[in-house]
Design a protein around this nucleic acid. Structure first.
Lengths: 188, 188
DNA sequence: CGGTGATGGTATCGATTCGATACGATTCGC
DNA sequence: GCGAATCGTATCGAATCGATACCATCACCG
């Protein structure tokens, strides 16, 4: 029952994405990729991370990125340390397009009348399901530092990723990371 | 946040469907359609209802059904009263395949450790979001008679659909219907 | 009845996604 | 340094998907 709901909601939102992108003749995948890039942190703005996020093969994702690049919606640049790695970011016109498309608008309307508390509860239940599902598939988890096991607080505003060893600013900790490790449940 | 979870869960389940169908070289859509047909009631076993359910165009769905028909997984037969209408049902080999594929198994594992109460709460929240979303898109709602505004109880075991005027057996009321109208919230 | 429009499905076409495979460039282990 | 592994790209073929046109049937209306 819950599974059905999740699938139907996702189908509808996919249809929304299709509608939102049709003006610019963009496919749902393209918008989905752009939405991801708008939220990914410094460790996660690569084709590899995007591939894990979308659940597709790297060849497929490479083509998607090719389209976005040709349209000038993203920029690709080389990593400094590992020159095999390509890093991605939205161009200004990409950000602009995403801002105008407002792909999440329909969802916001749909959930406006649901109490924050119920939303929180539903979120935590789904998050748990997702964690188990991804464990089984050995897939990356994708989450924010605020609830990541690697995150250490150095001072009022400065954090540190215990896995990568970098210092992170406050805003950076609120971006999406594919190295995310779910924090142990403290209430257990 | 909740939207992301829904989308990622749906992506993963879609990947599960792909894996489950790859042995038989069936695409996710094919399995999805079969899953629907396994649960649809007498008003909802048509290409039109399936089209609404999947959120695709009728041409696309027609092709999907063509594949399933050629593979002998479904049967098509004409409606008695309206001869334009085609009705669909799983063939025995279709049922067999669906039974062996167990597409929902991964999901069941993922939600096994979540308390029934939390599942219920999450379900109701998502159901509400879905209702609003579908209202906005003028899409069909899809639900069971047990919570449908048209459903009337005639006796211990016999029900009646107030919209279509037919009598329904108990099992029939637990199937999926695209004429579903969400019952007014009785707790309001 | 006959005719006009609406409706349920199908057929065809082109654009696009997607996976599989092969490949080039770079890095790492030894 | 040399071979193996890794990150990304390129190419090819199969399949989805939407748009459009089309056919058969039904509903409406004199």
């Amino acid at each position: 029952m819950l599974l059905e709901l999740v699938e139907r909601l996702a189908n509808l939102m996919r249809a929304e994405l299709r509608k939102a992108g049709s003006d610019e003749s963009l496919q749902p995948v393209h918008l989905h990729a752009m939405i991801y890039l708008a939220k990914a942190n410094r460790y996660s703005n690569t084709p590899q991370a995007l591939t894990a996020y979308l659940g597709l093969t790297k060849g497929t994702v490479s083509q998607t990125l090719l389209v976005l690049d040709r349209r000038g919606l993203i920029e690709r640049y080389q990593d400094d340390v590992d020159r095999r790695v390509v890093r991605l970011r939205l161009s200004t016109s990409g950000e602009q397009l995403l801002y105008e498309a407002q792909p999440a608008l329909a969802w916001q309307n749909a959930t406006r009348n649901i109490s924050p508390n119920r939303i929180r509860n539903a979120t935590s239940a789904l998050r748990e399901a997702l964690a188990t599902l991804q464990d089984d598939n050995e897939g990356a988890m994708f989450g924010e530092c605020t609830s990541c096991a690697h995150c250490q607080k150095l001072s009022q505003r400065i954090y540190r990723c215990g896995l990568m060893g970098d210092r992170l600013s406050g805003p950076e900790t609120r971006r999406l990371c594919w190295l995310y490790d779910a924090r142990r449940d403290e209430t257990g």
